[in-house]
Amino acid sequence: METMLLHLHLVRHGQTFFNRYNRLQGWSNSPLTDAGLADADKAAAKLRDIEFAAAYCSDTTRAQVTAQRILDANEAAGHVRPSLVSDMHFREQFYGYFEGQDMSVAWTAAGGPHGAKNYNDIVRKYGLAATRDFLKEADPFHDAESDNEYWHRVEDGFALIADNPRLKNGDHVLQISHGNTLLSLMHRFAPEGYDLSERPANGSVTCLDFDTNEPMDRAVSVVSYNQ
């Protein structure tokens, strides 16, 4: 089987009003602030010399606007502009009943019954997967994604990229991502040596190598984080 290694450049979308107000965003649509537009432009400057063979983002406005500004700058630098694929599989974690809630309130509700006072306390005591499972448990409608539901959707997003017949070994792919998704990918795939107490900044770039011929647990390797 021929090698099929893709270089993924994952950009966290620019700052939104929900980011500014410290609210869970998930599948909700909060527009970019002026600072968020500047975040997207900073990411565009970092990536202007890369020829992207494909581009993906979630079907949320914050991801789409960030992607378009990066692709605009990339095209202006003389590169061929790829079509942007906007798909729900690239969305952030779904927080269900807690969508739009103040983060401190939501994570206290999730962690409190388990003796954890906030998000970091849940991670420290129970691991990152528990943040999703505890939030689903605390959701009175149980609509929030469990850890298994979340990863099933995210892995389907990677499968969409892998199934793109136009991509070839060594191609560069732009993917607009989300804060908790980037942190989750790092927890799952990063070797030791990364400070994961530091959340990825809006407009930051995280680089992953994706071997489409490997099973998911071995397919992703981290090149850089939160640059």
Rank of each mutant, 00 (worst) to 15 (best):
E137P: 07
H178R: 14
D133V: 12
N148A: 15
D139W: 14
E155K: 14
L135Q: 10
S184H: 01
L135C: 15
A162K: 05
R166P: 07
D163R: 12
F134A: 00
N148P: 10
K168S: 14
G179W: 01
L160W: 06
V154D: 02
R188D: 01
E145L: 07
N148L: 15
L182A: 04
T131L: 02
R153Q: 11
F134Y: 09
L167F: 01
A130T: 13
E145N: 08
D163F: 01
A144S: 14
K136P: 07
H152W: 09
D133P: 12
S177R: 04
K136H: 14
A130Q: 12
G157A: 00
I161H: 03
H152L: 14
L182D: 00
K168W: 04
F141T: 13
H152K: 15
D143H: 11
H187T: 01
E137V: 10
E145D: 12
P140M: 14
K168E: 14
H172D: 03
P165N: 12
W151L: 09
H187D: 04
F189Q: 00
F189V: 08
K136Q: 15
S177Y: 04
F158E: 02
D163K: 11
H172A: 09
R166M: 10
T131E: 00
A130M: 14
T181Y: 07
R188W: 04
R132I: 09
H172F: 03
F158M: 06
G170V: 13
N169P: 04
D133K: 05
L135N: 09
Q175G: 08
A162T: 00
R132L: 15
S146M: 15
M186E: 01
A162D: 08
I176S: 04
E145W: 08
L135H: 10
D171I: 06
F158K: 00
A162H: 03
E145G: 01
K136G: 05
F158T: 00
S146K: 09
H172Q: 11
D163V: 03
T181I: 08
R153A: 07
S177C: 07
T131H: 02
M186G: 03
L183N: 07
A144K: 06
A144H: 09
D156L: 15
H152V: 08
K136D: 11
E149H: 05
N180A: 10
M186C: 06
L160K: 14
T181E: 02
L135K: 06
V154E: 03
R166T: 11
L160Q: 08
A162F: 01
A138Y: 13
F134T: 06
H152F: 10
S146W: 12
P140T: 11
T131I: 09
R153D: 05
Y150C: 04
L167W: 05
L182V: 07
E145A: 06
N164M: 07
G179M: 06
F141S: 11
D171N: 14
H152R: 15
F189K: 01
R132M: 13
E145T: 06
R132E: 09
E155P: 04
E145I: 02
V173K: 03
